[in-house]
């Protein structure tokens, strides 16, 4: 089979992982996660309109361990998609493309997303402690 010996187009398993591709993949993954998270947005607003029982239900599910895990995941997704989105908008102006800058802004988006997530959840824990 001569065809088997032909070089193949490299794909994800072949490339060395680097920040350029990680930030791109994470941007899309976070976007999909956030789109799924809009279900909670609908539930929150609809329950607020519906009445105290419905709102208590949503609060109950949001406070459950699974709910907290999902909220944590959505916080990070929003933080990363926001920071990397700002990076995309910067690149739309034509800036930020030199490799050094591109790698640096990629790391800023990744590390910054964890910092922002930690900040938001520090606020959450502080509010809960104060309540």
């Amino acid at each position: 089979m001569p065809q088997a010996a032909r070089p193949k187009s490299p794909h994800l398993q072949i490339y060395r992982w680097q920040i350029q591709m990680v930030s791109s993949i994470l941007h899309r993954a976070a976007g999909i996660a956030l789109a799924a998270g809009t279900v909670l947005l609908v539930c929150l607003l609809a329950s607020l309109a519906a009445g105290p029982e419905a709102y208590a239900n949503v609060q109950h599910y949001a406070a459950s361990p699974l709910g907290q895990l999902l909220l944590l995941g959505w916080t990070w997704s929003l933080a990363f998609h926001l920071l990397n989105g700002l990076r995309h908008l910067l690149e739309d102006t034509g800036a930020g493309f030199p490799i050094k800058t591109f790698v640096m802004t990629g790391w800023i988006a990744v590390i910054g997303s964890f910092v922002l997530t930690a900040l938001v959840w520090a606020c959450v824990l502080l509010q809960r402690g104060g309540a």
Partner: peptide
């Protein structure tokens, strides 16, 4: 549009934590 709106919504969601219905 979503840059300021999302930041505002995070503030809104955090404000809900200590509020009753």
């Amino acid at each position: 549009a979503l840059v300021p709106l999302a930041l505002w919504f995070v503030w809104f969601a955090l404000s809900l934590i200590h509020l009753d219905y």
